[in-house]
Each structure stands twice: as C-alpha cells, then as structure tokens.
Write a protein that binds this DNA or RNA. Structure first.
Lengths: 339, 339
DNA sequence: TTGTAAGCGTTATCAT
DNA sequence: ATGATAACGCTTACAA
C-alpha cells in the first residue's frame, strides 16, 4: 500500500475539467464562479479529500501565516499552561492560532524551536527564555518587524518587549511578612541561580533581610528545582544548630516540595510563604500563605503587546510588570516559637 | 520604517555573486562547495540575517515537515501537560518537533486546529478528542497514510489508534475500595456525561455498585467540571436525608474541588477516592487515596504507536490501555461511621 | 465566467 | 565546483 499522494488543486481541477485557478476561486470564495462549476468542484474536493496546502498559499501570498508561536520551558507546569491558555484566548478573536512548543528549559531546545517557528514564518513569536539562552541573534527578526515578546523572563542581550511578574517586590513582601511575625532565620528555597526569576526573587529576599537588619546567611539558601530536591532542602535548613524557623519557597514546585518535606518531618511549627499560588493551598495544614502571581494576566498582557505590534506599533520596547499579591492563609503567620 | 523584506537565498546569492543553488548547497551541507565560497556564503548569510524558508523547502521537497501536531483540550491541566511532555521527549530523538494547540474542549476549535496542522502538513497528528467532536472527516487523512493517534479518549466515528487509561476498571476498583470499607452511599462527582472518560468511569462506578448489590441512586451522581462546581456538588450529596458517606471523584479537578468542599464543610469523616493523582495528595488531611493514572506512559505509548506508523506499520488500528493503580493513603479507608 | 502566464523561495536534475 | 532550468502548489494580474 504505497503512501497515496495528497490531492492538489490541479488534481481537483483535472477531475472536474477546469483550471486550478477556478478551484482556487471556489476554495477562497473569491471572484465569480457559476453555481454549477462550484458544485462540481466542491464534490470533487470531498471525493479526493482535498486539503489546500497552506504552505504553498502563504508562500505565494507572501503573508506570514496566521499562527503565533509560543515557547515555554515546561508543559507540565500549570503556571505556563495557564499563561498559554490566556494567550490563546486573547489572540483567537483576531483569527490567530497559537501553537506551543516546550524547550525543556534548555537553550539548545529553545533555539531549535524558535528556528522551527521562524522557518515556518509564524506571525509573531512569544518566548519564555530558558536560563543561559542568548537572544542576540533574534535582533534581526525584531528589526525585520517580527513581533517578539518575552514572557515571565526578559530576553538575554536584547532589548525587547517583555512581561514579567513583580518578582523582587513580591518576594520582598513575602519575606518581610515572615520577619514581621518574629522570624530572623528565614531560609530561601528556590531554583538554580541562573534563572532570572530566581535571581529577582532572591534579591527581594535579601532586600527584606537588609531592611530588617538581619544578616544574610548563605547556609539558609538552598536549591530545590523539583519536589524531591525542595523536600530535601528544607530538611537541611532545619537541621543545623542554628536552624531556620521560617521558609520562603520561591516557586510553585519549591512550595509543594517544602510542604511535602515539612509533612514528612512532622513539622507544623515552621512558617512558610510560597511564591505562586497552589489550588489546594487553603486546605493544607496549616493553610499556605502565598505571594500569588497572575499567570492569566501575564498571558493577556503579552498578547496585547503582540497585537499592538502587529497593528504597527513601532514604539520602543517596553517591559510590563504584573503585580503579585500576598494571600495570608496561616502558614506565613505562624509566630516564632519561644525556645 | 517599512517592514523590511526577509532575505532569501537569492539575496544571499546575489550578495556573494553566486547562484541560489550554491547557497542551497552550503545551507544543506550537500554537494561540493569550495571552502572559500562556503565561507563567503556563510558570512553573507549572517550579515543579511538569512533564515531558510521551511515552507518553500518542504513544498519543493514534497516531504511533510518534521513537526508533529498535538491537540489537547486544556493547557492548564497538568494531566495533559504531562502527556505532552512525554510525547515531546519520545519524538525528539527522532528529530521530530512537537507543536501543541489547545481546543478548549470545543469541537469547533478542535476542527480548526486540526485543519491548521493538516494545512501545514505536519508529519503526524495526535488528538485528545473533545466531547461531541466528529472524526469521520479524518478518514481521508488516515487512508492517505497520515499517522493519526487519539489520546486519552478514542475517536468518534472512526477506527484509529488510540491510547486510553483503564478508566472503567480503575473507577470500579476505586469504588469497590470504598464499598469494602463499609460504604453503601457512595456519590459520584465527575465531568459532564458527554465526555468519554466520564462515561467509562461512571460505568466502573456502576459496575462496583452492582457487584456489591447496592442499588443505584441517581441523586448521588453530580457534575463537577471545575473546583467550584465540585465543591458545590459535594455539599449537595451530603445534604439529603440519606446522605452519601463516601465520594468518588472522577478526575483531578473534581478531586480538588471535593477536597476543598469537604474542608469548607469541616467534614473529615467522609471517605474519598479520586481518579488521577495530585502532587499534594499525601499531605492532605486525611491523605488522599487515588486511582493514579500514568500520563507519561500514555504519552509514550502514543508516541510509539505514531513512530511505528511512520516507519510503515500498516497493521490495523489498535487501542492501547494504560493501567491505573490504586494508592491507598487514608481518605479512601475511612470506615463508615456508626450512626 | 473562465483561463493563461508568471512567480513566491526552494531544490532536483542535468549541464558546464 | 558551480550554474541553468524546471518544478513543488498555490495566487496575482491580466486576458479571453
């Protein structure tokens, strides 16, 4: 069973006894076509299972096709999923289709995906840059007029539109909240230092400590990029002879991991503030206090920026910061236990 | 600032003083090119910011391009995110790029996405069918040799490869588990009845009741498609004069909603088994007993099926069922309280 | 109402 | 080692 060649316009035309151009007219509802030919063409189209080849069309028309590409680091993280959904919802009414690829947080995969999208001549490109990537090569695209928006993290080595959370301010507020409840030994569990969001949130952590006159202690800073690592990290910061009494978890995976870690240590006395909200936050014991991000707002803002660019906005690149919000639920208000 | 036209091979060729074909040779590392020309071409390419136009290439070569399309109903649901990640990981080593679009669980969006992918001549298509969709039109694609695999739910009106969870058996095991702990008033909180997975899991629920000789009671069956709805649903089944003493939640959103609902009712005595695992299941109070699915295995199985088809496997369509696993953590083992 | 010719950016084929 | 020409499937511009 040889792989059947896909029917083309010419095939349909031959079948009906007309020219490709006539079929084209029917397909695009353009120009005058007699009712009879139209009917016969349509019949032949279904008979042959004809699907217009969009690549050929776009090439001829010169138009970029109506898809916009989005590169995210991880499909399994609901944060990025929600961002993607919001972008989708915002661009769809404009007749644009969102297609998403995952870079798995590696610069190499990211480059390759961006190439794929560019080579397919997407209408616009949205990128959540992975740590260590270099976006200078995309300068060309930008000056060629390709709308380009960076999400959650700004571009590296390139001035371009970006939408980010209020990472530093949010983290500072979260840590200050813990300090306000008497804690002076506050651990930081976050991503690898190479990550923009982790750097910003870490700065916020240090801001809050500095404001409170609390000396910075390196041994309270841990990397917890997934649940297991974060659970192990929290065990370490609670183990020393001058242990942490509170923890700031710098992202949703870290929060989950810390919660799991505290539970397995049967520690209910450790205060915790997490960055990014969790669906089950309020039923945890104690309920989880968080610095909530607004992933949907991030997606919407990025889509707006992008659409403005598509509509010819040539103003200079701007960085939109989406505010975060402290939601006190219990875990962040645990007081410092008297020793 | 007029939109700069993107550089083409001919542009590069002219710049260097050679033919497009020579540039093509350099780009594709194909055929003999003198070291000197190669260098000059490469230089011109970067200078002009040349990016080969994949659409043109694919058109000429006639090959489908090396992307595979995946349609999922919801980007924000980690279940589908994990499935997508697994597919990505499995196809990448084959040099294939996964692009994902979201149908938002509507047949119309699904059709439109599939068209987009087909018109772009993806190498293969993976679809999580949304409720109410009709896949008969895709018969043509299938017989044209386009690898086509359905995920999580089988196609409607079309015999095609599919990978699904052991929905009915898993649900039956979960409900039987509750029954084994003395419960005879077991509520079912799930998706809308139109959904395949909900129908299957509902059948499993009824199987378990029938085996135990427990009469089916319609008033214990509720729809909870999101957290709020599920929380409201659980309140209803606990309210009547012959209330439920146990709940089976038929998906991860329903589980979360039921947990939230029980918490706000301050009910810790209601037994609960959820379909699909949650990251925080074990720290809930009581820890959540689940019928765990294996989304990664589903993604991998789909990718394997797809790759086999790409390699010319023309055997008849098969449906792969991925087993589920009961994980007892506490909530499902709460005994029936003596009245 | 329909057709013809040319061309979008590539590459296959056959020359040179 | 390089080039000329045609072709992929479609649409534009102009004829018939």
């Amino acid at each position: 069973m040889s792989k059947a060649r896909r029917a083309t316009m010419t095939d349909v035309a031959r079948e009906v006894g007309v020219t490709a151009k006539t079929v084209s007219r029917v397909v695009n509802d353009e120009g005058p076509v007699s009712e009879e030919t139209r009917a016969r063409v349509l019949a032949a189209m279904t008979r042959l299972g004809f699907q217009p080849n969009l690549m050929a069309r776009n090439m001829r028309v010169g138009a970029r096709d109506s898809t916009i590409g989005l590169v995210i680091p991880d499909m399994g993280n609901p944060f990025f999923g929600t961002v993607a959904s919001a972008v989708e919802a915002a661009v769809r009414p404009r007749g644009l289709t969102l297609i998403v690829g995952s870079s798995e947080e590696t610069p190499e995969r990211e480059r390759s995906l961006i190439s794929t999208f560019l080579a397919r001549r997407v209408t616009a490109l949205l990128v959540v840059p992975s740590a260590g990537g270099d976006h200078r090569p995309m300068r060309t695209e930008r000056s060629a007029g390709l709308p380009l928006v960076f999400l959650d993290r700004p571009a590296n080595g390139l001035t371009a539109d970006a939408v980010v959370s209020s990472n530093r301010g949010g983290a500072r507020a979260g840590v200050a909240h813990l300090v306000a409840h008497g804690h002076r030994r506050v651990a930081f569990v976050g991503d690898v230092p190479a990550l923009y969001t982790r750097r910003e949130r870490f700065q916020g952590y240090r801001d809050a400590l500095a404001e409170a006159g609390i000396p910075y202690d390196r041994s309270l800073v841990e990397v917890g990029h997934d649940h297991e690592a974060a659970a192990a990290a929290v065990a370490r910061v609670l183990a020393g002879r001058d242990p942490a009494t509170a923890v700031f978890a710098a992202n949703n995976f870290a929060s989950t991991g810390v919660v799991l870690g505290l539970a397995s240590l049967r520690r209910r006395d450790v205060a915790l503030v997490g960055f990014d909200d969790l669906p089950l936050a309020e039923v945890l014991d104690p309920p989880l206090t968080v610095i909530a991000q607004d992933p949907a707002a991030i997606g919407r803002a990025a889509a707006e920026l992008l659409i403005a660019r598509l509509n010819g906005d040539r103003s200079r690149a701007q960085v939109v910061t989406v505010p975060t919000r402290l939601i006190a639920r219990g875990s962040g208000e645990l007081p410092l236990a008297d020793p």
